[in-house]
Design a protein around this nucleic acid. Structure first.
Lengths: 160, 160
DNA sequence: CTCGATAGTTCAGTTCCTTAAGCTTTACTC
DNA sequence: GAGTAAAGCTTAAGGAACTGAACTATCGAG
């Protein structure tokens, strides 16, 4: 793999190579994860995107927010929510205070299905990230820091 | 959150909670990553799945292998490769030795586009995983271990 | 040679997703 | 208050992704 182990850092890597490897790994991980999630969703009779929405939907949320969650156009959300509604898992309710917005809310069946899906994804994560406990916590912390962005990472102790 | 903090591990977590958090984080990370990758692909005039194939395709590979990479049905691959062929990025060539299989091989334009895409994904990974170097290496190592599966994870020091 | 498995394709049908209108309701401005 | 811009959602048209079933062609083993 590392044809030019030029530096003597021990781990055999300048930053670019680490990034390249990371890129490849992330590709692979997300690919497998997506496949397994889709399979789990299909098991419950749900298409991928609809399952994704269901998983995210804890309380009533406006359509617009779903579009943000999915990083897609609002017009797309219409179809996905249509699907969920057809399956009886959500309903559209007029939002109080602003008659433009419609809130997507879970039905009882939707709540139930959501719990099932949640259970699936957790057990999926449990078997997928088959690591000793401390490593799992470390992975969690690293990912959390990645999500919060480059923020308090350079400073070690905040100046209080 | 942790209603039953029964153990006193200090980090406030029994394994289930860590897994639950990990599940949520991974959801978020993969979602954003997918969105950014799709955007980068669109920048190069490529639909997501075709970009995915292009990124994976280093040498000639039979259709079947692509299906495995994408975790999808072979019939789906036909369409995706049709798209890449229409764009002049790959060609289908009969495999020597077995006249059933067709190899998907990059054209010159395909090689070029692939390099562009590679460059994009690397710079994407670089900015997405904005962490100090040692943390980045650690993340890489953890992901690598996740991919290789539950194998030499219980032992700490390899005998080498 | 015949059978059964394997590699690809085609076809029909669903889902996802985007752009470009359009409609209704709000918010801003004069 | 009237006029206008903006926001939230929907519709319509079209491309791309994906599956399942049926089909062709090839390979391998008996």
């Amino acid at each position: 793999m590392s044809a030019h182990a030029d530096t003597e850092t021990g781990a055999g890597a300048d930053a670019d190579e680490v990034v390249a490897e990371l890129s490849g790994l992330v590709f692979e991980v997300t690919g497998r994860l997506r496949a397994q999630f889709n399979a789990a969703a299909a098991e419950l009779g749900l298409p991928p995107a609809q399952a994704l929405v269901l998983a995210k939907l804890s309380g009533p949320a406006p359509m617009r927010q779903l579009a943000d969650w999915l990083s897609c156009e609002p017009s797309n959300v219409t179809g996905i929510v249509d699907g969920l509604e057809r399956r009886g898992l959500v309903t559209r309710q007029p939002a109080p205070g602003d008659r433009r917005v419609k809130h997507v809310v879970l039905t009882d069946a939707g709540e139930h299905k959501r719990r099932e899906l949640d259970c699936c994804t957790h057990s999926l994560a449990r078997t997928f990230f088959e690591l000793p406990d401390p490593d799992r916590q470390q992975l969690r912390d690293l990912l959390a820091r990645v999500l919060t962005g480059p923020q308090a990472s350079t400073e070690k102790a905040e100046p209080s």
